[in-house]
């Protein structure tokens, strides 16, 4: 039986409790959660907040694609929760929550890591950092590719487009 999906782009605060509650399953002995938060510095500059811009339609589509790919790799029964924040957050604010549950822990850990790394490369989401000195700047990112999924040579840092 295929697992459950919850995918959303939200402008209300994200909830770790909601994520763990969603993936909880009597048949699963493991749940893994990634929580992304706003850091108080980047590239040596003090940061006071971040605004997230999201192309909702295509982002939700990439979330669904990633859930399908994770199930192909680690089992049809994974329960998967993915929410990304849209709007401005202060330091410590939660920008993303990914939760995955599975019968055993290995699959949850791997699927959770896979999903966050792929989102960083494939989902149309952008960050604008607000600095203590009053400046704001859009963060440089990864160019999107029209040819489909990027792939990794074991290490997520070595992502490349195959096409």
């Amino acid at each position: 039986m295929s697992g459950r999906n919850h995918m959303a782009v939200s402008s209300t605060p994200l909830s770790t409790e909601a994520a763990i509650h969603f993936v909880a399953d009597d048949a699963h002995g493991a749940a893994d959660m990634f929580v992304g938060t706003v850091r108080n510095h980047n590239l040596g500059k003090p940061v006071k907040g971040v605004s997230y811009d999201v192309f909702d339609e295509l982002t939700l589509q990439t979330f669904n694609e990633l859930a399908s790919e994770a199930r192909q790799k680690w089992g049809d029964n994974l329960n998967i929760f993915i929410e990304h924040y849209k709007g401005r957050l202060d330091i410590g604010g939660i920008s993303i929550i990914i939760a995955v549950s599975s019968p055993h822990r290995d699959e949850s850990f791997k699927a959770c890591r896979f999903i966050i790394e792929e989102i960083k490369h494939r989902s149309p989401i952008w960050k604008q950092e607000h600095y203590l000195d009053g400046d704001s700047e859009w963060v440089q990112g990864h160019a999107l590719c029209s040819h489909g999924p990027v792939s990794y040579d074991d290490e997520p840092a070595h992502a490349h487009c195959n096409h």
Binding site: Y52, T59, P124, H142
Partner: peptide
């Protein structure tokens, strides 16, 4: 349509 610069979600 939409014009999408390099991304950096998460």
């Amino acid at each position: 349509l939409a014009i999408l610069p390099p991304v950096c979600g998460g």
